[in-house]
Amino acid sequence: MATVYLPVEPQLGMTSAERAEAIDAEVWALRRPDSVRSPQDITRYYYPRITHPTTGQVAIVGDTEENVRIHPAVDLTKLLELLPEVPQAEKDGLVMFIDANRGGTVPFGQLIPSTSTQLTEVEAEAEGWFPDPIEP
């Protein structure tokens, strides 16, 4: 397991929290797309998210080594719309990669765009993502 912290920038009129939630939902949709989901389903997100205690920015807490299941009926439209800063060539490459792995798995680390900030736990702690642990 290799935990990675992915701070999400505000974009597209969304706050960091709103955009992080939307991206997280689309990561879950890789495994369970809208087309197979039921209205009463509760599970909507893949990874935990944390909020920076001073800036309010939200980060998705992923695992670069986790193999994410790709549903055969996956649709990347919404996910790509949420990543306007990613170059088109990289988006095209992501689509080809996902298409080649429909029904299989891909490591989460290979889904992270080159434009995304990636922090290790040590780096995230140094940047103040965790409140000072108030321990006994």
Binding site: W28, I42, T43, R44, Y45, Y46, Y47, P48
Partner: peptide, 22 residues
């Protein structure tokens, strides 16, 4: 578990919508 149902009648169900946290 997506939701541990509240049996008190107050509908304060304890939920978890994130796959990795359930």
């Amino acid at each position: 578990v997506d939701e541990w149902k509240d049996q008190s009648g107050n509908a304060k169900h304890a939920s978890q919508a994130t796959f990795a946290n359930q």
